[in-house]
Amino acid sequence: MATEASASASAAPAEDDVKIRIRNLSVNYRDLAALKDVSLDIRRNDLLTIMGPTASGKTTLLRTINRLNDIYPYAKATGSLTIDGLEVYDPAVSASWLRKVVGMVFALPIPLPMSIYDNVAYGPRLYGRPSRRQLDEIVERSLRGAALWDEVKDRLSDLGHHLSGGQQQRLCLARTLAVEPEIILLDEPCSGLDPISTLRIEELLHDLVAKYTVVLVTHNPQQAARVGGDVAVFYLGELVEMGPAERIFTSPKDRRTESFISGRIG
């Protein structure tokens, strides 16, 4: 699936193939330039892996896509970022509305301080008063989507943070799925997990691509290689290069990419 999608990457993607279009995007935290003039396209129902060492601007890019950086008054974004052609930083666009469309899973799996059920039901409850039946259905569907249902179906009233780390991360994914986003951002979702939990999350990614546009951030080249799809390499706030995973890992065009995947920087 991933190889198929990337085969056509060389040609410029058709206009309505693009879900997220980023042009000349720069983000500054006071004097610190976190992203420098980044331009890239993310295709609908595709998986893009953003890879780079720490402080390369990966997380900033994600937090710019769903405007979570709005909570830092000193974070300033310039340039253009559109989703389906809609300028995200248009003042008329509500950040809360945007974040329903653009779900996010964080590096540290931190369930909200409530039960497993309520963690998943929290999102849908923000948008009206679903009935108990509807909620039950959403919770089950979301937990199944995150491959967690079978493990927790008998203990839905347990506190979310009583689950294991890997389960907590899948719970965080489930609560994101529950609000039916179009895009899912994953910010190093496996950085705190053991290899087996990591594998489960990585397997899930491929299921997600069928329904969502997925952006994965990782500082781990092996993970990017395992996951496949398109890879964008970031270094110190710059987009170094972007292309299908096989190409990036076998014949990187930029010296910095080569240094990063061979472990010399990072």
Binding site: N66, L68, I71, S96, W97, L98, R99, K100, G103, M104, F106, L108, I110, P111, L112, P113, Y122, G123, R125, L126, Y127, C172, R175, T176, V179
Partner: peptide, 22 residues
């Protein structure tokens, strides 16, 4: 923790919903 607030905001909750709910 800030992550509670972010977790809630990232689901599209408003500031007020985050205060009351989380």
């Amino acid at each position: 923790p800030v992550s509670f607030r972010e977790g809630s905001l990232a689901l599209g909750a408003s500031k007020w919903q985050t205060m009351i709910g989380v």
